[in-house]
Design a protein around this nucleic acid. Structure first.
Length: 572
DNA sequence: GCCGTTTTCGGCCCGACTGTTTTCAGTCG
């Protein structure tokens, strides 16, 4: 099986961590870390590039050595350098490195001085008071390590963006009680609308920093104070999410907002650009020697560096800085561009509300059209529809369209893609529908080749319009099924199949990288909610944010079109 | 290890906070 980008990223990242513990040159460590990050953000499959003889050094940040490392990983699924290094730097140390407060230097010291390689050994040594005898450690470090071990096992890594949104609302409400706060914004991966976030970065401009910070750490929802300073404090809330607060002057608010929005890779790219132009960029502004050239707003920062304004969702160092310099940033899709929803369920199958209720809710949202897409018969758990029930539904839709002129209801079906690549409904029925949304709901564990073959076979069917939730992933709980997504996107472009970006917060599937890839290869995308009730229709904005992260513009998304244009696209 | 519109050598993003120090190293984002 070809090595995935994720595997390559993990190996490079492990190697960097072990080098770091081993005391290697910091810049070498950074080069590997950087390369791992680049691999993570790549939209094309490295195995394919290697096998087609592509020159990897054309990717900025990948030089001769790391290119050859990647080639070795693709060919052997491992890296001999890493294996050699593991002989004198045990891999288990990486677990210890994950504990907050312990970095490479301290981990190395624990290993060299006390021979500690596992969390269990670390715990024993703390309890025996051995750690505080080491130079650089004290009684307090011993206590903190024990606490970190305790908490580490129960704190979740990341949260769904939608979960974070709920927490943020409550938190902002609390913070705004303080009149000293003049301006407040959530930055970080939350503002970049990443599908999951690790913590919340909140930025405040205001008078009386001490009072603001005190108010922040005294929030009754705070379970633990990690740090408490004048400009920066960190706490963990009882919901287990970490929140960092920074207080800055209004004169530097834009610079701080830009800096704390990140991503780190984007910031580094911006600072490099600054250096080339002879200015220093930090979280307080853009400076020439001591003189502040910009800082009040983000727009000022970008203007000062000769860049167009870069939307937060694009700030991942995936070419946005170059595009901003050359005035070729995309005009990103916005929620108000959406004219209809092409994937939803009603009480005919496993939905809660009637077709009429869904249609009325869609009118409220200002939509021109919706498509009703129940599950097909083989999905018994969702009370999938057989031909008879579907015909009955079509008649009801005809009647509704006569009675409700404000909106058009399209006749659709979420058709199961069966294991052999056939569709779960007779063809004479499929032909009567306005559109089909086809999906994999069973046999998730086929091999990559079989799964890819299954889906591309189905896509060749002339009645196949939209591929729903293409990877089958559930964020934070289920990995995508094994499938060659690059081939799927190519097949979609060739066969005029639309790729769905499912807006359910735990799906957000099509992944952002393949949104961009779809755009590059000329495959269209539909953004749909897959709602099972009327409130579900308002989940659309989650999908739109994800689409923005994938550089999509209104013209790349079919449900930004009006009904006649949409129908033309669906008629193959 | 990577990179170059002053460079193929000599740089490499930058500042806040904490704990262990007694002027700073390590960690974090």
């Amino acid at each position: 099986m070809p090595v995935s980008n994720l595997q390559i990223e993990k190996i490079l990242d492990h190697y960097a961590d072990l080098l770091d513990i081993d005391g290697a040159n910091q810049f070498k460590v950074r080069a590997y870390k950087n390369a791992a990050r680049i691999v993570d953000g790549l939209s094309s499959n490295l195995s394919d590039l290697v096998l087609s003889g592509e020159d990897l050094t054309r990717i900025s940040g990948i030089g001769k050595d790391i290119a050859s490392d990647i080639r070795e990983i693709v060919e052997t699924e491992t890296l001999s350098k890493l294996l050699e290094l593991q002989e004198h730097v045990p891999e288990e140390l990486l677990r210890i490195l994950e504990l907050p407060g312990l970095g490479p230097k301290k981990v190395k010291s624990l290993y060299r001085e006390l021979g500690i390689t596992t969390i269990a050994e670390l715990k024993q040594n703390c309890e025996a008071g051995e750690i505080s005898k080491l130079s650089g450690f004290g009684k307090k470090s011993e206590k903190q390590i024990l606490e970190a071990i305790e908490k580490f096992s129960r704190r979740p890594d990341r949260f769904l963006l939608s979960t974070a949104r709920e927490l943020v609302e409550k938190l902002l409400q609390y913070l705004r009680q303080l009149p000293e706060i003049q301006e407040i914004q959530v930055a970080g991966s939350y503002r970049r609308a990443k599908s999951t976030v690790g913590d919340l970065d909140i930025l405040v401009a205001g008078e009386n920093r001490e009072k603001i910070m005190l108010h922040f750490v005294e929030n009754p929802e705070v379970e633990e104070i990690i740090s408490h300073g004048d400009t920066k404090s960190s706490v963990v809330l009882n919901t287990a999410i970490q929140v960092d607060l920074r207080v800055v002057d209004q004169s530097g608010f834009g610079a701080a907002l830009h800096y704390f929005t990140g991503s780190q890779a984007h910031n580094i790219a911006i600072r490099h650009l600054g250096l080339q132009q002879g200015v220093k960029v930090n979280e307080y502004g853009v400076f020439k020697q001591k003189e502040q050239l910009a800082g009040r707003t983000e727009q000022e920062i970008f203007d000062c560096l000769g860049l167009d304004y870069i939307d937060p969702e694009l700030r991942e160092n995936r070419g946005e800085v170059e595009a901003a310099r050359e005035n070729r940033l995309p005009g990103l899709i916005r929620p108000e561009d959406i004219k209809g929803d092409l994937h939803m369920h009603t009480s005919y199958s496993d939905g809660m509300h009637s077709i009429e209720q869904m249609a009325e809710a869609a009118v409220e949202l200002g939509y021109e059209y919706i498509a009703v897409t129940e599950h097909s018969q083989s999905l018994k758990v969702a009370r999938g529809l057989g031909p008879e029930k579907l015909k009955q539904q079509m008649q009801e839709i005809d009647r509704l369209n006569r009675e409700l002129p404000e909106i058009t209801v399209l006749k659709g079906l979420e058709v199961d893609i069966l294991q052999d690549g056939s569709l779960d409904m007779p063809e004479y029925i499929l032909r009567q529908l306005d559109l089909t949304v086809c999906a994999v709901h069973s046999k998730f564990n086929l091999s990559r080749e079989e799964q890819t073959e299954r889906i591309t076979t189905a896509m060749a069917n002339p009645n196949f319009n939209i591929l729903a939730h293409p990877s089958g992933r559930l964020l934070l709980s289920r990995d995508p099924y094994q499938v060659d997504m690059e081939s799927i996107v190519r097949a979609a472009a060739e066969k005029n199949v639309v790729l769905e970006l499912n807006s359910q917060p735990e799906r957000l599937d099509l992944d952002e990288f393949y949104c961009l890839r779809a755009k590059e290869l000329g495959a269209a995308v539909s953004i749909s909610t897959d709602s099972h009730n009327t409130p579900g229709l308002s989940l659309m904005h989650h999908g739109v944010h994800q689409a923005r992260r994938g550089w999509l513009e209104p013209r790349d998304v079919i449900n930004t079109r009006n009904l006649p244009e949409l129908k033309k696209i669906l008629q193959k």
